[in-house]
Simulated scan of single mutants.
Amino acid sequence: MLLPDKPIDERYLTQDDRIAIAEGLLAGRSAPVIAEEIGKYRSTVYREISRGRGPNGTYNPWWSHNQAILRRRRPKPQKLRANSELRGFVNDKLKQHWSPQQIALHLARTRPGQPAMNACPETIYRALYKGLLDKRTARLRTRRTRRKKQRRGIPVKNGIPRMRPVHTRPREADERRSAGHWEGDLIVGRAQASAIGTLVDRATRYVRLIHLPDGWKAPQIRDALVKQTADLPASLRRTLTWDQDRELYLHEQIEELTGFRIHFCDPHAPWQRGTNENTNGLLREYFPKGTSLTRYTVRDLAQVERQLNHRPRRVLGDHTPAEAMRRWSRELACR
């Protein structure tokens, strides 16, 4: 049996995957069920079953795996790197805001029988992401410069467990009848390499900024929220509403350590935490998009907090968030 000379990407099927496919077919399971069991796209499994049949017409995992290795080893130079005419054509069409799909279809229609002047959309995407095309003019209409992960058809194994939906948030939080119900999010710096946590109280519009010098993955977010909200009275740590982003994967630990009851917005529903969205817009005056946020210290964040919290707000009757928070704090202390 041929062995690969280097580990393959997890997107590709391994020999164990192919054996699992064969066992699934023998057991009478469908391709979508098999795909879910091995964590691959169903289209990948369909293609594998179709081209993995051995000389006798039945699916043979060992024969198919050897064939895949042979296909991977064959000399195959990058088409757009080797063909300057094709590269120039693709560059020109991308400059005219054509999509890779439109370019590929146009080439197939206008250059039939010329394999050297044909390219599938994936070839164009890979060349673009690897920098083989003119970076100044060859761009996608979305301005995306790297591949966006796709998980369609694959079971989400890393979803946030046991999320509490925003619809179960207390009515007093929805109606802004009391302080202590917060909305949270991150503002992210250049290349997603730095971030600042933002908390805003729904009733008083009071802002707290969370310093994240060690990064913004789930453990760092947990530690920062626990440490930097510890000075808030328990009566002002009631609920926290957040997007379904993985930085709050450890939300149950945060709840246990802070007392917040955390609720998650629906997917693609930023208006469910609109106060925070508005506040983040104000904060971009201090932390512009496309800049690194690592240079801001705790003192810098505290100064921005003071400015926002001592700025009169029409929604508060021209009072400041700081005044509104002091009033609510006194009322809560008297209860």
Rank of each mutant, 00 (worst) to 15 (best):
P100L: 08
A35S: 06
G24A: 08
N276M: 04
Q272E: 14
P115Y: 09
R205M: 10
T198L: 02
T137R: 13
K135N: 05
R208Y: 00
D16M: 14
D174G: 14
G52C: 04
R74E: 12
E305A: 05
R306E: 13
H211A: 06
R147V: 06
A322C: 13
C120V: 10
I160C: 02
W216R: 15
W62P: 08
I49Y: 06
L257R: 12
L133H: 04
P32S: 11
G88S: 10
Q244T: 04
R42D: 11
C334E: 14
R246Q: 12
I124D: 04
R171F: 07
R311G: 05
R176E: 13
G54F: 03
R151K: 15
R126Y: 01
N91E: 11
H97E: 13
P312V: 00
Y249E: 11
E247T: 11
H97V: 02
G197W: 00
P4Y: 03
T239I: 10
T294I: 09
L236W: 01
L70H: 10
E85L: 15
E48K: 03
W62F: 14
R311W: 07
I210T: 03
P170F: 05
K149P: 15
D9K: 14
L308S: 05
H106P: 03
Q78D: 13
T258M: 05
A234S: 12
T241E: 08
E37F: 00
G39W: 07
H167Y: 08
T320V: 06
E122R: 13
R314E: 10
H310F: 08
E305D: 07
P115S: 09
P161T: 10
R151L: 12
W271C: 12
I49W: 06
A82M: 09
R208C: 05
P7R: 01
T137F: 04
Y206N: 02
Q67K: 14
G189K: 01
T123Y: 01
L133F: 04
G317D: 09
H251I: 06
P219E: 00
R295K: 14
L26M: 10
F89V: 02
H181M: 10
